[in-house]
Amino acid sequence: MTPSFSTVFAEHYQSVFRLALSLSGSHADAEDIAQEVFEVIVKALPKFRGDSKLSTWIYRITLRTGTRWLARRGPVAELKVDMTATDQSIPIDLINVLNKLSLDMKAVVLLAFVEGLTHDEVAEVLAIPVGTVASRVHYARKEMVKLLGHP
């Protein structure tokens, strides 16, 4: 049975917002992306056939909606730490490093390192072989350490 929208919102908002924040690097943009994601979910949930896990479907929608939102917004300069911002918890250096990765690499990083999904789960979300996930995780970690050390 398809769960109610309020249940989906309560259970998945945190993941959706965190992914949106990782993609955009800004709280305001992440809220806009999250809203768009849930607008899609409101419309598509009644037709959700359950071919995959609900979380898998929501991760896919979030990655696509977030990327589309960023494409519509257009390119922006590298993010800078805003010392006047009320919430300085966003790791700007990490977001800048993520922005330097290709989307297929970034998607693996976000799902594995930020969301804590297993390689099997990441493979299911992206519909790629588990071996590909493992090699991307390995490469991405090395690349991120390198970029964080030498921005």
């Binding site: 908002y13 945190q14 965190r18 918890s89 990490l94 930020v114 050390g149």
Partner: peptide
């Protein structure tokens, strides 16, 4: 650098979403 990466990832994982959830719900 590994420690820095882990520290930054942890900050991203533990970001506060409660206030934004209310705003997004109202936006919807």
């Amino acid at each position: 650098d590994e420690t820095v990466l882990e520290e930054q990832l942890e900050r991203l994982r533990s970001v506060n979403v409660i206030d934004s959830a209310k705003r997004v719900e109202q936006g919807l």
